[in-house]
Every structure is written in structure tokens, then in C-alpha cells.
Amino acid sequence: MKELKRLEPLQAATQFILKHYPNCQGALLAGSVVRGEATHTSDLDLVIFDDNFISSFRESLIEFGWAIEVFAHNLASYQAFFKSDCKRARPSLPRMISEGIILVDNG
């Protein structure tokens, strides 16, 4: 079976955001791809901020040749995750945001 060619990470992430979250206030590409630690099994970790989300959620999809993990937050819900992550000494979300590449920044 012929392997599908996948888009470059930044291109795939940008197209994914435009397709699924075109009105979000912010979006970041994070994770191993951004840190230069990606392997052939790596996924794209996307953090999405959209004030229209009622609550935070996470979803896994496959698009543009990539497994994509979406970490979705409204403009306040991420704060509880920050506190929880830091309290358990595993600051996953703060790390993703501090290392992430900004894809969308609408204020």
C-alpha cells in the first residue's frame, strides 16, 4: 500500500486551524515537533483558544497526514489547568504555551 505524503508540520497545523477553528482568538503548535524531537510517529499538538468554547476539551483527529491532538480552551478555562499542572509538578500546558509557535493571535 502506498504511504500518503503528509504536509510539513507548520503547514498542516495552519490548514487544520483554518478549516476547523477559523474564528479562534489564538492557536499554537506545540510538542515534540516544535522542540525538534519529532519521530515518524509524532503527532501535532495544537492549543486552541476560543471564547466561544463553553469549557475545555481535548480531541484526537487525523488530518493532512498527521495525528493531531487538540487542547481546546476558552479565554479563562486554561487557568485551572495551569494551576493543576503546576501543583502536580507536571506543567504540561504551561510548557506547550511557552514553547509553542503562534499560528493565530487575534488579541
Rank of each mutant, 00 (worst) to 15 (best):
M1C: 08
M1N: 10
M1R: 15
K2R: 13
E3F: 05
L4P: 01
L4Q: 13
K5R: 15
R6C: 03
E8A: 06
P9T: 07
P9C: 10
P9R: 10
L10V: 08
L10P: 00
Q11D: 04
Q11P: 00
Q11F: 01
Q11L: 12
Q11N: 12
Q11I: 12
A12H: 12
T14H: 13
Q15E: 14
Q15G: 03
I17R: 02
I17Q: 10
K19Q: 10
H20Q: 13
H20C: 06
Y21H: 15
Y21V: 02
N23I: 08
C24K: 14
C24L: 13
Q25P: 00
Q25Y: 03
Q25K: 06
Q25W: 02
L28R: 13
L29C: 10
A30I: 02
A30S: 11
G31W: 01
G31F: 01
V33W: 13
R35H: 07
R35E: 07
R35W: 00
G36L: 13
G36I: 10
E37S: 13
A38G: 12
T39W: 09
T39H: 14
T39V: 05
T41G: 06
D43A: 09
L44N: 10
D45C: 06
L46C: 07
L46Q: 08
V47S: 15
V47D: 14
I48D: 15
I48G: 11
F49V: 03
D50S: 05
D50T: 06
D51Y: 03
N52D: 10
F53N: 07
F53Q: 07
I54L: 14
I54E: 11
S55V: 04
S56P: 01
S56A: 13
F57H: 09
R58S: 03
R58G: 05
E59Q: 11
S60D: 04
S60F: 14
S60N: 11
I62N: 13
F64P: 03
F64M: 03
F64D: 11
F64I: 03
G65C: 04
W66C: 00
A67T: 04
I68D: 02
I68V: 06
E69I: 01
F71C: 03
A72I: 01
H73T: 01
H73D: 04
N74I: 01
L75Y: 00
Y78M: 02
Q79W: 03
Q79N: 06
A80H: 06
F81Q: 09
F82I: 07
K83V: 02
S84K: 10
S84E: 11
D85Q: 04
C86N: 08
C86A: 05
C86K: 05
R88G: 03
A89I: 02
R90A: 13
R90V: 05
P91I: 07
S92M: 14
L93H: 07
L93V: 06
P94C: 12
R95F: 00
M96T: 05
M96D: 08
I97T: 01
S98A: 11
S98F: 00
E99H: 09
E99N: 09
G100K: 06
I101V: 11
I101T: 07
D105I: 03
D105K: 15
D105W: 14
N106R: 15
G107D: 15
